[in-house]
């Protein structure tokens, strides 16, 4: 029976090549219209494709090792550490002036992602197998990275525009955390709004990737929906933890131990 999608990498490559016609068409139209994104799109496609290919090759190896006991675990740990470092570095790049930005993003993203992923494992929502752990770790780290970046962005902007308000509060004897309580709340809310909005529109406006993939792989839609909800709970839970950790840890970059604003703010 034809399952409707490629069964081997070679078959997949043929399908990809034929579908790429659409991509090249879009690139052509954008250069014709001088939109100025053709080069970036091509670069993104090549880099993204190469990264996906690399991850797939590693995953294939890990799945193969799975049969030989827990040998895949150290390799998966290295991969997850790589995800943590890259996501933290990308997020820290958004706040180039902030001292210790990498330390903040690395700790926040890792805490949110690892905790939420651990809950899924402990609750037996997913088995401890590379084909589950690695993709879900990717989702957890990717979402936590976005949420961390949004939190840092909002905080930095609020600190720079609201310096007068913060110093007025400090001058009345507020501690640094009391002086920015509302900024913390606003940053967390702002960072989580896109995720919460996506959750609200689940199934109505879009069927998310994991659920769509499971349905296409023949899983019962109801089971696929339940699994998708599990993933969203991981994303939201991890996101909240990441955002909370970001505002707490970033405070050390904005203030010194004497509850004074740092010069760079």
């Amino acid at each position: 029976m034809n399952p409707g999608f490629a069964q081997t990498p070679w078959e997949g490559l043929v399908i990809l090549a034929s579908v790429s016609i659409l991509f090249f068409l879009v690139v052509l139209v954008s250069s014709w219209k001088r939109v100025g994104i053709g080069k970036d799109m091509t670069k993104g496609f090549i880099i993204g494709g190469a990264q996906l290919a690399l991850v797939s090759i590693i995953l294939m190896a890990l799945i193969e090792w799975e049969g030989e006991g827990t040998i895949w675990l150290p390799a998966a740990a290295v991969m997850v550490t790589g995800m943590a470092i890259i996501s933290a570095a990308r997020s820290a790049k958004r706040s180039p002036d902030m001292p210790f930005a990498f330390r903040t993003t690395a700790a926040s993203i890792s805490l949110g992602s690892v905790l939420s992923l651990s809950v899924l494992l402990v609750a037996d929502a997913i088995p401890l197998r590379p084909e589950f752990v690695i993709p879900l770790a990717g989702m957890a780290f990717g979402n936590s990275m976005d949420i961390c970046s949004l939190t840092m962005d909002r905080m930095t902007r609020e600190f720079q525009t609201g310096r007068g308000m913060i110093e007025t509060r400090l001058s009345l004897g507020a501690t640094s955390s009391q002086a920015v309580e509302d900024i913390d709340r606003m940053a967390i809310r702002t960072a989580l709004i896109p995720t919460i909005d996506r959750m609200k529109t689940l199934g109505i406006i879009f069927i998310p990737g994991a659920m769509a993939g499971l349905i296409m792989a023949g899983v019962q839609p109801l089971v696929a929906a339940q699994f998708q909800l599990v993933i969203f709970l991981m994303i939201v839970g991890g996101g909240v933890i990441t955002s909370l950790a970001t505002v707490t840890l970033a405070r050390e970059s904005f203030f010194n131990e004497n509850h004074q604003l740092q010069d760079w703010v």
Binding site: E167, S171, L172
Partner: peptide, 18 residues
């Protein structure tokens, strides 16, 4: 510093209202 600021309160020029 927090105790000091409770005792010696600064009223900044811009009078920011909360």
């Amino acid at each position: 510093p927090v105790s000091l600021r409770k005792e010696a309160v600064l009223v900044p020029q811009d009078s920011t209202m909360f």
